[in-house]
């Protein structure tokens, strides 16, 4: 296990380095500069600012310096959005909200999706199955912005009676304000999880060991929830890993639609504003989070499926 963890850690560091380099290269090829706004400053001011933040140096030197600082946990300071505030600070402020919404979204996706999938598989071919299949297929065909904007136009529409949930995020409103964003963010994963659970459940129910369990005289309860479900969860976990990372770090769209001051919305604004350190910081943070999630998923695999040996690393 220790050897495996070290191996994964090395891989993670290499991945992060590459992600950082790619982001850096891409970012620097975006035309424009952080200093441009309504009042274009004089060339002298720009030069001075560039020098102050090290933007006058060649790209490779900038990257080297950045990586050096990154190792010490320093992601630089924001150039524009929140001038001179450390990027780590900004992430620390923004991420919890995104994570909170993401957590509830993924939670409802799992809590509702898996049982629905089991239900559909158990009633295969019956009307319950058909209805659930229609809903879930529609669900995975609606981009989150469609769900979000439809919710928005429903709950902020002309009908006063429907204005139950606020459509503009306001943390002081507590629970109610989370309902719509969490629903919109979790709807796609919920449908996906339900579909995946259904198909892997059916797969599991067709296996020989289910025949054995039936031959042993087990009732349908233990057959489904003990024997089939645990095997069926494996592909569901595969999907959930990266999805959790993505949802946690902010559905960009959902944050935009509901005006949530989260990391996702901030990232888009930082691109528009060419706030280089902020772009770098967010990307690297998100990549690290995805890597962590993938690692957790692999560990979870091991828990669910005793056949998997982490040390070998190969499937």
């Amino acid at each position: 296990m220790a050897k495996y963890t070290i191996k994964r850690l090395l891989m993670a560091i290499i991945t992060l380095l590459i992600v950082a380099s790619i982001t850096f290269a891409l970012m620097n090829s975006i035309p424009g500069s952080p200093w441009l706004s309504e009042k274009t400053p004089s060339q002298a001011t720009i030069d001075a600012l560039n020098e102050k933040y090290g933007l006058d140096q060649p790209g490779i030197v900038q990257l080297g310096k950045y990586l050096g600082n990154l190792v010490q946990g320093d992601m630089g300071v924001s150039l524009k959005m929140q001038k001179n505030r450390p990027v780590t600070d900004i992430i620390r402020e923004m991420f919890p909200l995104s994570a909170k919404i993401g957590f509830f979204a993924i939670l409802w996706a799992i809590i509702v999706g898996i049982p629905l999938g089991c239900l559909a598989a158990y009633h295969r071919g019956k009307w319950v199955d058909s209805v659930l299949r229609v809903i879930c297929t529609i669900g995975i065909s609606m981009p989150s912005f469609v769900v979000a904007s439809l919710l928005l136009s429903t709950f902020a529409g002309k009908n006063e009676a429907l204005r139950v949930f606020p459509t503009i995020f306001d943390a002081s409103l507590g629970f109610r304000t989370y309902v719509l964003p969490c629903f919109a963010l979790g709807f796609y994963p919920m449908c996906y999880v339900a579909r995946q659970t259904r198909s892997s459940m059916l797969d599991a129910l067709g296996q020989d060991y289910i025949k054995t369990a039936r031959a042993k005289g087990l009732k349908s309860g233990p057959i489904i929830f003990k024997h089939a479900l645990r095997n069926a969860l494996i592909p569901v976990i595969t999907y959930l890993g990266p999805q959790i990372a993505f949802v946690f770090c902010g559905g960009f769209v959902v944050e935009t639609v509901f005006s949530i001051p989260g990391l996702g919305r901030y990232f888009i604004q930082s691109i528009i504003n060419r706030d280089y350190p902020l772009i770098m910081g967010t990307t690297i943070f998100l990549a690290a989070f995805i890597i962590l999630m993938n690692f957790l998923v692999d560990v979870l695999y091991k828990v669910v499926d005793p056949r998997i040996q982490l040390e070998k690393g190969d499937n």
Binding site: T23, L26, C249, F267, I268, I271, I279, A287, I290
Partner: peptide, 12 residues
């Protein structure tokens, strides 16, 4: 797989 694709696509 570990690259946050949405971010990179946006950047790209």
């Amino acid at each position: 797989y570990s690259i946050p694709e949405m971010l990179v696509v946006l950047l790209l």
